[in-house]
Structure formats: structure tokens, C-alpha cells
Simulated assay, not measured.
Amino acid sequence: MKILHIVGHIREAGNGFVNAAVDLACLQAKYGHEVSVISSGGEYEELLETYGVKHFLRKEKGGKLLRHFNALKLYWHIFNQFQPDIVHAHIPREVILSRILQFKFQYAIVSTVHNEFQWRAIFTGLADRVIAVSQAVGQSMIRRGIPAEKVRIILNGTLDSPRKRSIEDYPPKKLHQPAILTVAGMQQRKGIADLIDAFKIIAPKFPQAHLYLVGDGPDRLQFEHQAQQTAVSDRIHFEGFQPQPEQYYASADIFVLASHQEPFGLVLTEARKAGCAIVATDVDGIPEALDRGQAGVLVPPKNSGALAEALKQLLQDPERLNLYKQRSKKNLEWFKVDRVVEETLKVYHELYPSS
């Protein structure tokens, strides 16, 4: 099968949709398919080349209309050259452009809804098949008008990704214990402010505890200012973006994902593999990533008090903490990237059954 993925960029910047697209492209090529990727480029170009995936560079210049027009011209040229069977679009705009050109070329369009909370996600419904990364996302897209017969649920999975070496290959980062960790973009949607407030609440009772915030983003300065206003700012560490956060997972006692919106949360499976006890908000696809709460503690979103109470319960009870560390490591086979690739290929075969 000839598969063409279209994604905004392939930078190593911690973007879940980029990681998912790169994983698919690499392993689909490994399985013997002819795979190409269109993007504006990035650090993963070398990895794609290693797996035999051809990369077409898209340059984004000028205003929005000019960029769209230039993209259409480029796609016409690429589609004519590559003759894809499947165009897999990972951004809503690319679904629209692929649909415009579909009258000329014989391909089917598959889209993956990575950020369902964005209004433009509804345009993924123009594809022939729509992949939702969790049951919650699938149900949301159906409520928003995408025909149910188009929607397929493929839970995200990142374990054993071609992007990463084994977690055993990374020496643990030396952290103050007990260490509370989050790995997330520094933006309001990720609930970073709630986590800082929760830590401020529990910090006096647990004077040895430290909070580590791994990630970067547009609201980082705001969160840093918030932390500086607390009496425990010396125990709140902004570590920036880390291309290999496994070193932090390996040393953390508790991993927190305090998102207000989260289609799935790939970081949760990585934290689970490392054996962190997990506290996360009960929103969107997060419960599915935590086996409906069996593999972690679920708390209401935008509620720093509830988050603080969950952290307190774990920190004050070593047996409870150890129990959730053990629970997080169970039932992880389902989150391996090979399963995601196989289920995605099944969706392709619905559209090209003879391939």
C-alpha cells in the first residue's frame, strides 16, 4: 500500500500528534508499505529516512490564502508523483486540501482527530474515515455531526516507539524525594496553575517534597511568576522541554496530569511504564488511559483542592503510594505502538480491501 501522511511539522518538541504520525509512518514502512510524509520539516527527518520513509518538505510563506494556494500546488505535484492509495491527514486543514484534490487522484482520505477540543476539528469529518484517539473523542465528534459510520476508535499508544530507546537506557535524573512530576506543554489547558496551587497547599505538610515541571509553552512565564509568589518557590522546578523525559519518569514518585481538556494523554502511558503513581483529571480520554481509574487516581478538573487531597493521600501513606505504583505498571500491552499501527492498517483496508 502507498501511504502518505500529512502533518504540520516533525519537530522533536513533545507534540503528541507529531509523535503519533512519526510512529505510524516509521512502522508502516517497516511492515513493508511505501510511506511518505509531507511536513514543514524537523528533527525527525533523519529517523524517517532511517526507516525508508520519503519526506516532502512544505514551506509555509505568505498570508493564509497564499499558504493554502501554495500547499494545493505542492500537493498536486506530490500526489501526481507518489500516487498514494491512502492520504492520512493529521491536521484538519490538510483534510480540506486533500478533499479538494481527490477528484483528480484515486486515493482515500483518513484523518485522525488529535485535538478534538479545537473548533476546526469538525473538518476531519470530510475524510472517508475518521480515527478518534479515545472513546471520549469519538463520541464527541459524533455529537458534533460526524457520521458514526465514519468514526473508528483507535486508542493512542506510544510504548516501544521507534522514536525512543528503552527506558532502561536512560540513567534516572537525580531528583529530590519525594518527587512530583508533570510532563506537559506550558499552557492553561494543561492545568499547570492548578498543580502549582495544589503543591502550595500540601508543601508545608511534606517539607521534603519537590515539584518538577517538564515542558515549555506560551504560558511558562505566567506559571513561573505564580510559583515565585508562593512560599515554596525553591521547591518548584521548571525544567523546560526535555526530548527524553524518561530520566524524570524513572525518578519520580508521583506523576500528575492536571489537564482541563485531554483527548488521551500519551505521557500517561510513559509514566505508567516507569512505575509512577499517577494522579490525573477525570476528563475526556484520560480515564481510558488509566484503565478507568484502576491505574491511577482520578480527580475533578480545575480543582486544586481535590488535586492536593489526592497528593496528600499518597504522600502520607507509603503503602498506598506503592500500591498505585504497582497498579500503573499493569495492563500495558494494550498501549504499545504496534497495536496502533495494526488497527490503523485495518482502517485503511476498509477503503482498499484488496491491498
Rank of each mutant, 00 (worst) to 15 (best):
V340Y: 02
Y348D: 10
K54P: 04
E34W: 02
K329A: 06
A277H: 12
L315K: 02
A193P: 00
F103H: 15
P245R: 06
A108R: 06
P92Y: 06
G305R: 11
L213S: 02
S39L: 03
I236S: 02
A89M: 04
T50E: 14
A231V: 09
Y75L: 15
R152T: 12
R165H: 10
A184L: 02
A310H: 08
L311Q: 06
G265M: 02
C276N: 14
I202Q: 02
I146H: 02
Q177L: 05
F238I: 09
P245S: 04
G240A: 02
N322W: 01
L48G: 10
K330T: 14
L66Q: 14
F17G: 13
L101V: 05
H90C: 03
A121Y: 08
T112K: 14
V256M: 06
A203R: 00
E350N: 09
Q208E: 15
A308V: 10
S140T: 03
I91A: 11
R120K: 14
L57T: 10
D338I: 07
D23V: 03
Q188D: 07
P300C: 12
E350W: 04
I78W: 14
F105E: 13
L266H: 07
K200A: 15
I131L: 06
L211P: 00
I201C: 03
I38S: 02
F206K: 12
A258I: 06
L311S: 05
A258C: 07
L57W: 11
A198C: 13
H260D: 12
E333V: 09
I278W: 00
R120M: 14
Y248H: 08
T182Q: 03
R320M: 11
I192Y: 05
I154H: 12
E224A: 06
P243T: 08
G42D: 00
A179N: 04
Y51W: 06
Q135D: 15
L155F: 07
R129F: 11
T344L: 09
S140M: 05
G185T: 02
T230I: 13
R129N: 08
I3Q: 01
S355T: 05
T182G: 10
N80I: 04
A29R: 11
Q208S: 15
A209T: 08
Q326T: 00
E333T: 08
Q106G: 15
C26L: 08
A127S: 15
I100T: 05
Q135A: 09
R58V: 09
K61T: 08
P172C: 05
K30V: 00
H90R: 00
N303W: 01
A184H: 06
A108H: 13
D160S: 05
I153P: 00
N19P: 00
F241G: 10
D194R: 08
G52N: 06
E168H: 14
E116P: 05
D338N: 04
V347S: 12
Q261T: 07
R58P: 01
A121E: 05
L257V: 12
G285S: 04
E34P: 04
K329I: 06
F264Q: 13
K312Q: 13
L47D: 01
S36C: 06
A29I: 05
P172E: 09
L266Y: 08
R144Q: 15
